[in-house]
Nucleic acid binder design. Structure first.
Lengths: 215, 215
DNA sequence: GTCTATAGATTGATAGAC
DNA sequence: GTCTATCAATCTATAGAC
C-alpha cells in the first residue's frame, strides 16, 4: 500500500467515523456535511469526492457495521435451527432470541470503535427520514426473515401472525434499549444505571422477551 | 364568539392539524413551515403570528393530544392502584399495564382526528431532535413515575431496578407498535395485517408484556 | 389578521486552481 | 487528492403595507 492510498484510506476512515458519531448524536438530517468534515478534520469537498453524496456516505456508514454484525447473527440463529433439526427437535425460542440479541448488545464490547453505531441502529427503524429507514431495512430484511421462520419453528403451536407480532414487540424492546443505553441520552431518563454492563442487559432482556414469546 | 375570533381559531386549528400530520409523516426537522402553511392553506407568516415560533407550535401540537391522553391513563392506573389498596391486595400488573396501554392504542378510535399523533408519539422518544425529545419527556415524566411506582407495588418481590428495565422493554414494544401501525409505514414491513384493529393489537401486546413483567 | 417581500443564515453540491 | 470559492436552493423569522 503506497502512501497516497493510505492517506486516502485514512481520510475515508476519518469521515466514516465522524459521520457515525454525528449520525448517532444528531441524526442523519441533523448532521451537515460541514459538521462531519469539521469533526473529521478534512476538507468539506472530501465527502463528495470520496463517497459521491451524503446519502452514499450514509450507506457506507451502515454497511461497515451492519454486514459483519448480521453475518454473526445469521450464523448463530442457523446453528440453533440446524442443531435442533439434527436432533429432530424444535429449536428453543430462548436460544433463537439469544442468537439475535446477544451479538447485538455485545457489539460495543466486541467492536468498541462501533459503539456509536448501536445508538444509531436503535433509532433507525423509526427515523423520520425515509432514506435512513430504507437503507437499514434493505440490509436487515433477510435476517428478519430468518429470525421469523426460525421462531415459527420454535413455537409450532402458535399461529404465524402471533409469532410475527411478538417478534415485533421483542424488536421494539431491543431497539429501544439500544437507544436508551446510548451515551447521548440524558441520564435523567435512566435513574438505575449509568454504566449498564452489556451482559447484565442481556440477562435482563432475554427472560423478558422469552416469556413474552411463550406467553 | 365573533367572526374574527372564529376565523382565528380556524386558522390556528388548521395549522395544528397540518403540523401534526406532517410531523408524523416527515418528522419535526423534516417539516418546514412552508410545508405546514401550504398544507393548512394559510399564509407562511401565520405560524409565527399565532404561535411565535416553530418550536412553540411543536409544543402546542404535543399538548393538545398528550394532556387529555395522560389524564385518562393516570386515572385508570390510580384506579387499579387504589382499588387494590382498599382490598389490602397488591395491584394486578396486567391491569396496571392495561391502564397505560389500552387508552394509548384506543386513542385513534376515541379521537379519530388524532390518529397521526400516535405515529408521532411512536417516534418521540428516539427522535434525533433534542427539542422533540425534551418536550415529550417533560409531558410524560410524571405519568412514567406513576406507572413505575404502581408496577413496583404490583410486583413487590422483584427488585425495583428489574421492574424499571422491564417497563422500559414494555414501553419499547408499545412505542414501536405505534410507529409500525402508523399509516406512513410502508406495508412491506408488515405482511400480516393491513388494517390492524386496535382491540386485536391490545389483545396481542398485553399478554406479551404481562408475561415479560412477571417472568 | 393576512399578506408580500425579504433579511440572514445554512444547506448539499461542484468548478477549477494547485 | 486537497483546497478555496461559490452556486443555487432551502430554511426560520420578521418588517411593514393593507
Amino acid at each position: 500500500m503506497n502512501e497516497i492510498n493510505s492517506e486516502q484510506l485514512d481520510t475515508k476512515q476519518r469521515i466514516l467515523d465522524a459521520a457515525e458519531y454525528l449520525f448517532a448524536r444528531d441524526g442523519y438530517r441533523g448532521t451537515s456535511l460541514r459538521a462531519i468534515t469539521g469533526q473529521a478534520d478534512v476538507n468539506l469537498a472530501a465527502v463528495n469526492y470520496h463517497f459521491g453524496s451524503k446519502e452514499a456516505l450514509l450507506e457506507e456508514v451502515i454497511k461497515r457495521r451492519l454486514l459483519p454484525l448480521n453475518e454473526t447473527r445469521e450464523l448463530l440463529i442457523k446453528q440453533v435451527r440446524d442443531d435442533a433439526r439434527k436432533e429432530g427437535k424444535t429449536p428453543d425460542i430462548r436460544e433463537v432470541l439469544l442468537g439475535f440479541i446477544e451479538p447485538t448488545l455485545l457489539f460495543k464490547e466486541s467492536h468498541p470503535e462501533g459503539e456509536n453505531f448501536m445508538t444509531f441502529i436503535g433509532r433507525s427503524i423509526t427515523d423520520p427520514d425515509d432514506t435512513v429507514r430504507q437503507v437499514f431495512h434493505r440490509f436487515i430484511k433477510p435476517l428478519f426473515h430468518l429470525l421469523f421462520e426460525t421462531s415459527c419453528e420454535a413455537l409450532p403451536d402458535l399461529p404465524k401472525d402471533i409469532v410475527f407480532w411478538r417478534l415485533h414487540f421483542s424488536i421494539g424492546s431491543l431497539f429501544h434499549t439500544l437507544h436508551v443505553c446510548g451515551k447521548f441520552q440524558s441520564d435523567e431518563n435512566i435513574p438505575f444505571h449509568s454504566d449498564m454492563d452489556s451482559q447484565t442487559l442481556i440477562n435482563l432482556i432475554i427472560p423478558f422477551v422469552t416469556a413474552g414469546m411463550k406467553a
